[in-house]
Amino acid sequence: MKGFATLVMRELRGAWVSGGMLLPIAFFLLVAILFPFGIGPDSKLLARVGGGVIWAAALLAALLPVERLVAPDLERGVVDQLAVRGASEAMIATAKLVGHWLGFAPLLMLASVLAAGLLGLSGHTLLAIELGLLIGTPGLAALGVATAALTAGLRGSGAVAGLVMLPLAVPLLIFGAGSIEGGPGALKLLGAVSLLLVAGTPFVAGAAMRMAGD
């Protein structure tokens, strides 16, 4: 696993310079702000749908940087150079997963506090959301990396990425939003889905990158 930490740092730097760290968070907050405009200022209603809004916004924010996760590295021969130095594609994908997660999840969890305030959610609900995000965001990051690898090199890959990723994220959304009121049962299922995505992504994304380089 030589150079794994270096690769993770490189991902984080990539996220930072492309504005990819702050953009998804701004986007996330904007979605959370726009919802009350759409459904009106009924605080009871907002408190009830707020958790779901945060989860949907988190999903969209995780999707935003997908286009720059894998495709540029394939085009510029970075993946080739790593492969020549003996790094496996699965290791590269794992580094991308960790880097992508670090790039958006901690900030997103912070921004959720703000979003919860805007939507008038209780402290108890906020705690449940944060716990759910902590367990669910690795799954979102994994889905983002897998989608990025699968759609790299396609024309209009941004739109295709959405079409690929959003349906696959449904279980995360159901159990994530469900865990706010569903309690430990939903959290366990969320954990299971998230774990499955995290465990599968290095191989799916790795294989996709290998085929793209062939």
């Binding site: 490189r10 510029r76 080739d80 150079q81």
Partner: peptide
């Protein structure tokens, strides 16, 4: 190896 692109960030 050097290919088409320098692969530098």
């Amino acid at each position: 190896l050097i290919t088409e692109d320098a692969a530098l960030d």
